[in-house]
């Protein structure tokens, strides 16, 4: 099954096309931040409209609840601050690091290939340990 390769976009070398490549008008979010946004959205709805949320919302909500590793909005903020300390990281790389939580620098560079040559292994290793320490 070959669906054809989109030449313009490739997350491995941080090519996201025109719309998503524009960092001013597009910001990748961490799963923990999405969890908070979805909770707010649901809280704003009156009780009788809770079931009106469509399948895309409900499926994403279930996904985020399942894979969210940082349980509270406060911890999510700390995670964001830790990641922002490394200005050399692309916003997408920050999201991937927090969402996938690789254990070692070698694993991080295998699943997020654009990290290669960006951060020293010591620095990256420290960041990964910092993030892991925040998991609840």
């Amino acid at each position: 099954m070959d669906l054809g390769v989109d030449q313009e976009e490739n997350a491995e070398n941080l090519k996201f096309g025109e719309l998503f490549g524009d960092n001013e008008h597009c910001q990748p979010l961490l799963i923990c931040e999405v969890a908070e946004l979805l909770r707010q959205k649901r809280a704003e709805l009156p009780a009788e409209l809770q079931s009106s949320l469509g399948p895309i919302f409900v499926k994403s909500e279930a996904y985020v609840e399942r894979f969210n590793q940082f349980r509270s909005a406060e911890v999510a903020k700390v995670v964001r601050v830790r990641l922002e300390r490394h200005p050399e990281l692309h916003p997408f790389e920050r999201a991937q690091l927090a969402n996938l939580l690789p254990e070692t620098p070698a694993e991080a560079k295998a699943i997020i290939p654009s990290l290669k040559g960006k951060l020293d292994d010591d620095v990256l290793g420290q960041l990964l340990r910092d993030l892991a320490a925040l998991v609840e």
Partner: peptide, 11 residues
């Protein structure tokens, strides 16, 4: 929005 080359978790 999924992207080619991206690593992600699923069920």
């Amino acid at each position: 929005r999924p992207f080619l080359g991206e690593v992600l978790d699923g069920v």
